[in-house]
Design a protein around this nucleic acid. Structure first.
Length: 849
DNA sequence: CAGACCGGAA
DNA sequence: GCGGGTCCGGTCTG
């Protein structure tokens, strides 16, 4: 059957996003529900203004995919349920709705999960299989059911019956009919067609010959077929058996039953999850699911014939994209590695003492759920053990593996981790970077290299070419793509063309890009198989608990006046960064945290500012031009020398630098609204060694110059972390800063000197492009907000004691509705006509100080 | 080992 | 809707 092409978007019903009107399913229901004893336990409207989608990985729910019938003249069965205002639907609650945690929005497939429900954990385990997490905060989780998420669900073995049954189980209302239809329709077409590699050739394979014949009639696909082959080949399907993932309880001989929980099997490290007495069982539910996924292959359908046709290896991306985007018939990639007798086995296993954590097991069981290796993406926060997941995958497949990293440094780290966690013969690991070009001695092995080494297009050094030919010429069992969010980049995506591999595992902490290419990963690599919940991991002590705060630093009169007159955005951001009040705040915070015994990292994107701050505060710093030796020296001192408690880094430190000592992080300048940079910087302190100390907290400060574009970008940047459940506190005044001795730029003279220097700097360094119009014109805003959504930053009014060591800081209590003003600065105080007013009041305030 | 060059970020 | 201008890392060359 030909899959239905998507109908044009507009068919009789506006595809209105559900805005604030429907954002309150819980409050509208529960405020009238007197059984919730504590009103303040309930989220308020503001809390529910979770940001709408923050990336484009998810295709919007498309009601228009339903055929119009006499029953559903509007094209879907739910429209008539909506009043003009798109209020929440009138479906009656089930009698025992309080036990059920899900609200399902029939219009767009959004699902809201109450975290305080007794069946929360079970519902969550179910939801992460079938839906895409959008936002997971303390009380509310928001998910979206999308074609891609359902694709992932099917590819880990769930059937449409499973999905609908469990939706019904957890939903407070009857599952809307159109959601059921949507699930039905999507699951019908998914998982039918596979892409397989055999003897270095790619085949499109299916159990259903008709689907393949249909594909071959497609113009794009037929062009990619290898022409002189038989139209369809038919062979017997391979047999499957039980598989054990190394490092799991099963593998180390611990009975995989609930009772075994209390035996406390040996731990990988000091931090392990606590047992849960919850009847709906956190850990147990996780494990049940893992077990379920592992065992599910026993009941797999008995199909004994598969059909296939060959496609041109050069054109697989084209085929994948076409099938995924145009035909809505994504190619699943599965590697039956145990049946592979062509490729040599690799002698590798995890060291016997190594046991992976439950979420790693859960992630991997989704990859290996049916005894084969499925291609896909696993999302884990920094410091949660991504590398070990990759290594365990390699130990499961036990074929030649190739690991791709973004930098040579991370290549070295992977090699070390392989030696640490697995028993692989060090000779079987080869490094391939510009510096080192090792070769494999045996038939099978692990190659670790950088993306750029593989994708290099220009002339190659002789030895480099040799190694490349080797890599491209052979067939790999597993390709691990570290920092997989870089793969959609024009150059880097070539790796999937150049390297012939049976399975692909993408790893990242932040599946985000500010462009819309992230969705390409769906066909370049595969579906997102697992995404960890940051909040949960930090509660369990796997990653550090972090207090986030935004410190508002008023601009001084001189700086603000120059700021308003500045002709270029560069000059403006430099002035905001070099704001003396910000410098003072930075000085104060460093001093404050050094006294507490914290190790502090200060981040600045701007190199000039970095040097100024570092020399002014007499702290060592590292940036791009810093030589290798000096870098190591600084880092080593930071780790070991008590006298060096603070270092300053440019964006060199955003990724890959592993600094387990750091416990406090201060940002003074950042790259526009990059949510990924924000998340990655936070990641620097998530692996803090001291994270399991009693009451330990790591700190993350963003210093923001008030009333500048930094305010706007800051709220953008936080969006991702807010979705992960982090609350940003706003600090408007640092108590005690006035009494601080040796405060920099305390007098006018010093400030003027600095200003002169900054102005000089911005003249010489910056271009002279004029700011055409308003600072927040679409031109400047689009990049960080291409969907025009509110960022929905959750501001949490802090109590004085809530921030450990925060006794000296005053928090702003946020008035309701303040969020909106912040997220939409064009409506607030940035309008041109208000600038004059602002300047006057600014000057007045300065005088009062 | 510096410097040219390219590509990524966003 | 496109491409800023800048920093950074990797690779190759001399």
């Amino acid at each position: 059957m030909a899959p239905k092409r998507k109908a044009p978007a507009a068919n009789g019903r506006p595809s209105k996003r559900v805005a604030s009107g429907v954002s309150t399913p819980v409050s509208t229901r529960t405020t009238s529900d007197d059984d919730y004893d504590e009103d303040d336990e309930m989220p308020e409207d503001d809390d529910l203004q979770t940001p709408a989608k923050y990336d484009n990985t998810v295709k919007k729910f498309q009601p228009s995919t339903y055929a119009r019938t006499k029953d559903y003249p509007s094209g879907d069965p739910a429209s008539h349920l909506f009043k003009a205002k798109h209020d929440f639907f009138d479906e009656p609650l089930k009698a025992d709705h309080r036990l059920r945690p899900l609200w399902i929005d029939p219009e767009n497939g959004r699902v809201v999960l109450e975290t305080f429900s007794p069946s929360f954990k079970r519902a969550q385990n179910f939801l992460i299989n079938i839906a895409e997490p959008v936002s997971r905060t303390t009380n509310m989780h928001e998910y979206t059911i999308s074609p891609h998420s359902l694709f992932a669900a099917v590819s880990v073995g769930l059937t449409k019956e499973d999905i609908i049954k469990d939706l019904e189980l957890f939903s407070k209302t009857k599952v809307p009919e159109n959601i059921k239809q949507f699930v039905h329709q999507v699951t019908e077409s998914f998982g039918k067609v596979r892409l397989v590699l055999k003897h270095n050739k790619y085949f499109v394979e299916s159990n259903d010959a008709k689907v393949l014949q249909m594909l071959l009639r497609d113009e794009v696909i037929s062009q990619c077929r290898v022409q002189d082959t038989d139209e369809l080949m038919t062979e017997k399907a391979a047999k499957k058996g039980a598989l054990v993932i190394p490092g799991t309880r099963e593998a180390v001989g611990v009975p995989n039953q609930a009772q075994a929980e209390r035996q406390q099997p040996q731990k990988r490290d000091e931090a392990d999850e606590e047992d849960s007495d919850d009847e709906f069982g956190g850990r147990e539910a996780e494990k049940d699911m893992a077990e379920f996924l592992r065992e599910e292959d026993d009941e797999d359908d008995e199909i004994d014939q598969v059909h296939s046709f060959e496609i041109d290896g050069e054109k697989i991306q084209q085929v994948q994209e076409h099938c995924n985007v145009k035909l809505n018939l994504p190619l699943t990639e599965e590697y039956d590695f145990r049946a592979d007798e062509v490729n040599a086995n690799l002698d590798i296993d995890l060291r016997p003492s190594v046991q992976i954590r439950y979420y790693q097991e859960h992630a991997l069981s989704k990859m290996f759920g049916n005894g084969r290796a499925r291609s896909g993406i696993i999302v884990l926060p920094c410091g949660a053990g991504k590398t070990l997941v990759g290594i365990t995958a390699a130990c499961t497949v036990r074929k030649s593996a190739i690991i791709l990293c973004t930098s040579a440094m991370s290549v070295m780290q992977w090699k070390e981790e392989f030696k640490k966690w697995s028993n692989i013969n060090p000779e079987d690991i080869a490094i391939f970077t510009s510096g080192e070009k090792q070769k494999l001695n045996h038939k099978a092995g692990v190659v670790i290299c950088t993306y750029s080494m593989v994708t290099q297009n220009t002339r190659r050094a002789h030895d480099s070419k040799q190694v490349m030919d080797f890599i491209m010429g052979r067939e790999w069992g597993l390709m691990v793509l570290d920092e997989v969010h870089v793969v959609p980049a024009e150059m880097f995506r070539r790796v999937t063309e150049r390297i012939k591999t049976h399975s692909k595992l993408g790893l990242t902490a932040t599946l985000l890009r500010e462009d819309d290419k992230i969705k390409d990963l769906n066909f370049l690599i595969g579906p997102k198989l697992y995404e960890a919940n940051w909040l949960q991991l930090s509660e369990e002590g796997h990653i550090a608990r972090v207090q986030c705060a935004e410190v508002w630093c008023p601009m001084t009169t001189e700086f603000y006046s120059e700021y308003l007159q500045a002709k270029t955005t560069n000059k403006r951001s430099l002035l905001s960064t070099m704001n003396p009040r910000k410098f003072q705040a930075c000085q104060f915070l460093i001093d404050f945290h050094e006294r507490r015994g914290d190790k502090v990292i200060v981040f600045s994107d701007n190199v000039y500012a970095l040097k100024q701050y570092a020399t002014g505060l007499k702290k060592p710093y590292i940036y791009g031009d810093t030589g290798q030796r000096e870098r190591e020296l600084v880092l080593q001192n930071f780790q070991q020398n008590d006298a060096v408690s603070t270092i300053m880094l440019s964006k060199i430190g955003d990724t890959s630098l592993d600094l387990p000592e750091a416990t406090c992080l201060i940002q003074i300048s950042s790259h526009y609204g990059s949510r990924r940079q924000e998340a990655q910087r936070l990641g620097r302190i998530l692996r803090a060694k001291r994270r399991n100390d009693e009451g330990f907290n790591a700190f993350f400060y963003s210093l923001v110059s008030k009333d500048t574009n930094e305010m706007y970008y800051s709220s953008k940047r936080q969006a991702f972390l807010v979705d992960q459940g982090y609350a940003f506190k706003v600090i408007t005044h640092l108590n005690g800063i006035d009494r601080m001795p040796n405060l920099a730029y305390a007098n006018q003279q010093e400030r003027m000197t600095l200003l002169t220097d900054v102005l000089l700097q911005s003249e010489t360094a910056g271009g002279v492009e004029d700011i055409k119009d308003d600072l927040f014109s679409d031109r400047n805003v689009r990049r960080v907000d291409h969907k025009g959504k509110k960022s929905g930053v959750k501001r949490q009014a802090g109590t004085l004691s809530s921030l450990a060591g925060g006794e000296n800081m005053a928090y702003m209590e946020y008035a309701k509705g303040r969020n909106k003003a912040l997220a939409q600065p064009r409506n607030a105080f940035f309008r041109k006509e208000e600038r004059q007013k602002e300047r006057r009041s600014k000057a007045a305030r300065e005088m009062l100080e």
